[in-house]
């Protein structure tokens, strides 16, 4: 099952790792460097799911999720948040912003793939 994913993270290392985890599993991976860039990239694609970091320059993950949800065609696109802490309030905040789920960093590639299939089919 080939899914198209948009990964938004300001860390090049993290973007590389996401790509390395997902491409071998047959995913198509688009990347963006921060929230604003993510919105730009989203303009040309319709990903099956979005992965986003929270702490980013220019526009953080919460702002990005808000902006994505405001777009009619992406209102129901699954969005997974990458977070280093599994703190409940972070999860609550991510969900309040409209995130579908979360992945704890450092992530295991298999779990990331599973989680994406879980939310994106």
């Amino acid at each position: 099952m080939s899914l198209s994913i948009l990964a938004v993270d300001d860390s090049r290392t993290m973007r590389d790792m996401i790509r390395l985890a997902l491409q071998p599993a047959g995913f198509t991976v688009h990347t963006a460097d921060d929230g604003l860039h993510g919105i730009d990239v989203l303009d040309g694609i319709t990903p099956d799911a979005i992965i986003t970091d929270i702490n980013m320059p220019r526009m953080d993950g919460f702002g990005f999720i808000d902006a994505v949800r405001e777009q009619e065609q992406h209102r129901a696109t699954p969005i997974l948040v990458l977070t280093t802490e599994a703190a409940p309030e972070l999860k609550a905040r991510a969900r309040a912003a409209g995130a579908t789920g979360w992945i704890v960093k450092p992530f295991d590639p298999a779990k990331l793939v599973k989680a994406l299939q879980m939310v994106a089919g």
């Binding site: 980013m56 320059p57 220019r58 953080d60 702002g63 999720i65 905040r93």
Partner: peptide, 17 residues
């Protein structure tokens, strides 16, 4: 349901990539 209180970061001057 948690209140939708997400606080988007104010966009600062873009850092050149």
């Amino acid at each position: 349901p948690p209140s939708p209180s997400a606080a988007p970061a104010t966009a600062k001057a873009p850092t050149p990539i």
